[in-house]
Every structure is written in structure tokens, then in C-alpha cells.
Design a protein around this nucleic acid. Structure first.
Lengths: 189, 189
DNA sequence: TCGTCCATGTAACGCGTTACATGATTTG
DNA sequence: CAAATCATGTAACGCGTTACATGGACGA
């Protein structure tokens, strides 16, 4: 039942329109975000696994091209939503923060803005706890450290602060634009 | 000849004083940096591999305690210095920036401040290139994206800017304190 | 027809994760 | 002496990496 981040991203991507492994590779290559490997040895086996688990189904393209297009099954959608609903692993905040950023995007696209903002609030709480721990560590254990270690600690603090600032801006924007948002929704889409 | 970041960190750690696998686990647990797993299944096999490669040597503690203390061999030191000398992989800047931060610390401790600052200059150049690519991507392809994707992109830009700012501060501090540094070196060690 | 994309795969390998297992030493 | 802590390992598993292999489509 467990999905890797790559699994989740693939399940998300194939929903926009049918995507082949090649499409996904191109996408990973062409964005400078480069979180994931575009190597065939990563993409194709991952797609095959998802198909074996019946979270994806594939069809050969009708125009005879040697090309396999995937789409998400109902189980796939359920699995993806389960992934989005899981509590935030505090460990992920340290080792794979970008996974959580991606999760924010997928949540917004799949579940809408309110759900995404709820996720951001959770994320902010975990990040804040960690940030305070790092600051405390710097101010205590950091005293016995060499200059370079302190520099690195300082960087960690600054990066944490930047992230917290981003959360604040997102939340403020969301709260501040509540009415305007309503109007946009009425006039726009 | 290739070292993982965990390999390099272990080679570095055992130099301070003889360290056992347990010591390393404790260290990984007790810092809030938590980049590496403290699980025995990660630590002990890694140490064993390094010993097989003759980059570490281990001795049972003389006091009969069931404890294996490692120290770095000459080959180990050479391998670590080789790791420090390798060119920066631009891919690492995206996927494992913390590895590079760690490399800065190890460089400073093993090769001294001038070498560490030279590394920072290299690091800054690669980071700057990437940062500009992300900014350009946001300002072009970003226009066709949803709000959440833009938010995530914005976060990436801010984090990149924070890092660049850190580089600048390090370099300014280094340049500005050149004389004082000389004095410190003369009077200190 | 020769190279260059398009497009998909597989095999070997290394390493981290999880879980299990073992036993010595200290502390209450 | 029981429990916690110290301390080291191993086995199964999954997944990413690297490298290799294949073959169709298309323009020069």
C-alpha cells in the first residue's frame, strides 16, 4: 500500500493526460527542478510496478507507434489520496523536504486550495518544531564547535527561516484574499 | 575508489578519536541535523565495507569490552582527500545539497580555511548557475502553471537566494578578516 | 542508407531500510 | 537478579544507478 514519492508523482502526472514513460522522462529532463532521475532504469520499472499493483493501466497507442500510455485506475486514485492524507513524517522534513513541497502541489491540484492550506499549516507546525530544535542546538552544543560547523549550522537556521517565511506568506495571502478569492472563483472559472 | 557521503563522513569522524559504530550511531541520533540514518543496518555494514577496502582498520578494545574501535588508514586518508578534491556534481546541488555543506565542514577541518573558501567559491558558482536557471524557468514556463506550482517554484527561488547570501557572507567575512586571520594563526596554533 | 530521435526494456550491483537476533555490562 | 543500556551483527527486501540492448520512424 505504500507509495514512494516517485510513485505518487507518476500517479499524479498520468491524470493530466495519458502519459508514457518517455513523456515522464522528458518532463524530468526539461524542468530545472531535477528532483527525480530521468533514467529509464528508474522510470520504466516504477511504471511496471504500479501497473502490477493495478494502480495504473496501460494501453498501446492505437496509431501503432511503439508507445505505451498509462492512465490511473480508481485504485490508483485512492492510493494517491491515501498518500496525501498520511501524517507528515518529521524525518522527511530533514531528509526530503522537496517531497513535501511536491505534496503541497499535488494536494492543491487534486483536493483543492483549502486542503492544500490545511497541509501547509501542518507542515509549518512540524517545520517550526524542527527549526527551534536547530536553533537551540546551535546556541548550546554549537559553542564547542569549529567555525565551519557553526557556518553550516547557521545555514541550516537560515534555510529553515526562509521556509517558515514562505509558509507565513502563503497563509497570509490565503487569509487576506478570502473575499477576492470568492470573486475570482465566481468570475473566473 | 568511490565513496558515498556516509563513507566520507565516517572516515572523517574516526580521525578525531577512535570511534566505534555505536559512537557514530549516538552521534547521528543526538544531533538534530539527522542527515543520516542511525540504524545498525546502515552503520555496521558501511564500516565493514570500509575495512574490507582497507580504508579503516579496527581493533578490539583492550579492556575486553565488546566494542570495536576504528581508525583511518593512510589509504583511508588518501581516499577522503580524493573525495574532497572531486569536482562538484551539479546534480548534487539539487538532490543532496546537504552533502555539499558537509563537504565544506570536512574540507575546513582537514585541509584548512583557504581550501574551504576555495570550495565555497566553486560551490557558489554552481549554485548561482542553477539559481539563474530556476529563476528563468519561473519567469517563462511558470506562466502556464497553477498557483501551487508557482508557490513551490517561488520557494525554490527563495531557498536558492538564501544559500547564495550565505556564500556571500562567508566570502566577505573571509576577505574582510584577512589580516586578523593572519594574526590569529600566528598567535593561536 | 546513415545517423538521430523516439521508445521501451533488462541485468548487475550497491546500498539503505526494516526487522530480527544475540550477548555483555551496568544500575536499581 | 531484573531491567535498561551498551554493542554488534545478519537476512530479506526494495529501489535507484549504471550500462547495455533493441527496434521503429524519419529526415539528410
Amino acid at each position: 500500500m505504500k507509495l514512494t514519492t516517485l510513485d505518487a508523482l507518476m500517479l499524479f502526472l498520468v491524470s493530466h493526460k495519458g502519459q508514457s514513460g518517455y513523456d515522464i522522462r522528458q518532463l524530468f529532463q526539461s524542468t530545472p527542478l531535477g528532483l527525480f532521475s530521468d533514467s529509464p532504469g528508474a522510470i520504466y520499472p516504477a511504471l511496471a510496478r504500479l501497473e502490477m499493483r493495478e494502480l495504473l493501466s496501460s494501453t498501446a497507442e492505437p496509431d501503432g507507434r511503439r508507445r505505451r500510455v498509462y492512465e490511473r485506475t480508481a485504485e490508483g486514485e485512492a492510493a494517491l489520496k491515501g498518500w496525501l492524507a498520511a501524517p507528515i513524517d518529521p524525518d522527511a522534513i530533514v531528509r526530503r523536504p522537496q517531497d513535501l513541497d511536491l505534496r503541497y502541489v499535488i494536494t492543491a491540484e487534486m483536493l483543492g486550495r483549502p486542503a492544500a492550506m490545511a497541509f501547509i499549516r501542518d507542515y509549518a507546525a512540524v517545520q517550526k518544531a524542527r527549526h527551534e530544535a536547530v536553533v537551540a542546538f546551535r546556541d548550546t552544543a554549537g559553542q564547542h564547535m569549529g567555525r565551519a560547523s557553526l557556518d553550516a549550522l547557521e545555514l541550516g537556521v537560515r534555510l529553515g527561516a526562509t521556509r517558515l517565511r514562505w509558509f507565513e506568506d502563503l497563509l497570509a495571502e490565503d487569509g487576506g484574499l478570502a473575499d477576492e478569492d470568492d470573486q475570482t472563483r465566481r468570475s473566473g472559472a
